[in-house]
Nucleic acid binder design. Sequence first.
DNA 1: ATCAGCTATTGATCTACATCAAGGCGCGAA
DNA 2: TTCGCGCCTTGATGTAGATCAATAGCTGAT
Lengths: 250, 250
Amino acid sequence: MTRNSAKILTYSQDCNECPIRHRAVCARCESDELEMLEQFKYYRSFEAGQTVVWAGDKMDFVASVVTGIATLSQTMEDGRRQMVGLLLPSDFVGRPGRETSAYDVTAATDLVMCCFRKKPFEEMMLRTPHIGQRLLEMTLDELDAAREWMLLLGRKTAREKIASLVCIIARRDASLQLKASDGELRFDLPLTREAMSEYLGLTLETVSRQMSALRKEGLIVTEGKRQIIIPDFDRLLEETGDDSDGGFLV
Amino acid sequence: MTRNSAKILTYSQDCNECPIRHRAVCARCESDELEMLEQFKYYRSFEAGQTVVWAGDKMDFVASVVTGIATLSQTMEDGRRQMVGLLLPSDFVGRPGRETSAYDVTAATDLVMCCFRKKPFEEMMLRTPHIGQRLLEMTLDELDAAREWMLLLGRKTAREKIASLVCIIARRDASLQLKASDGELRFDLPLTREAMSEYLGLTLETVSRQMSALRKEGLIVTEGKRQIIIPDFDRLLEETGDDSDGGFLV
DNA sequence: ATCAGCTATTGATCTACATCAAGGCGCGAA
DNA sequence: TTCGCGCCTTGATGTAGATCAATAGCTGAT
């Protein structure tokens, strides 16, 4: 079993409504710790485009994405923006021990997050080593993802960037289940061209052009607004520049 | 006190010969845990240019840099390379729970690392929550650094990239102590043009040209091979594109 | 003293992507 | 039905940085 399939499996088992995805690992949890989590949990909803917190603002909670997509971005004084995190369901936001957000957190689609007040969460971390361990694992995964992303930003061509992004979403998207029998992959690409360009370090025009190019060559098929079909995943993978076995970008 | 100065302070207090920099935090440690660390510790030296491990190779230890500089890089099939980690003294290498290296680890200068066999280290992590907590903190710092780096790779101009790199090294370099009385900063930039280009996602020619440009404008002064003087740190900072207060890239 | 092998610099040219600009499509509001 | 507004596409042009190429300094070996 490859690392990728293992990863996909892991995600499908995760619990989106717990900052440490506890369902997947709670065999080791004591039930009263979970009670603690339940007790301090609350939900917040955002519409597509809304900002959850601005960089520098107070952020007195940690959270995990339940449904929808959130992004982390940095902005330069003159307005240049770079996305630095793409949060899908079950992903974690917020840094224990830091009281302000270092990034703009934005709802890329309609979004539901499951939040925990930071204070009790940190106390529980101290009492329950398992939670810290889980968080460490998740953070290490994120760091690996960030480093794969750095390779993309620093060295890939626009075409490779687009192909990579489509493959990344395809792999992570839960509705991956929508895989048709003949090996074609059908799923939602719920990002605007602008969001894609912020992810990839390109302009939205370049994103649009390269999407068109991949479409003309039959590497991807678009259906309606944002439904994407990948007729042959391996063929698209070849356009990413990654070596065939690698690309374990979470 | 700004975040930056706080960070510098932290580093200067760190212990380079312990994977969790324990001197800085060992007030909370039990002494027999430290004994454990001592017991499984060994040193390895490398010459500049030598490879510590290749991506994909077995890596049965974790380590911290004692002296010198190590880099983490990814390589694409056709040889394009991107640096994804720059490890200065006291920085940690290796991922607990992973038996192969995900990156090429290379000695950028002559290098001494303090290594711990992975197995006993992991056992100790289980027994000593404090170590995991420390590792989590360090990993979160690395993740922040990676995200700052992503902004650099995705959105900064070549000039801004160079200025940023020089500032980053200046801030982190221990020999920061070499700060002269009139506010000028003198330190070693122990990276070849090629290493700089791999860090920045540029070619080495572009690095060379931009270094020359900054030199001609008096923003930096070079002395001998790799000694650098920054006559006015704040003026150089303005060239990085970062907002004046931010830029806490570890 | 000479040479081979690095590393760095600088120039000439090319090109991938950015920038500027003009429509087009779909959708909700009036 | 029409208008306005987001979002996307496509074309024309500009440019930052890549690529190709020549040379120079430095170091250590013969």
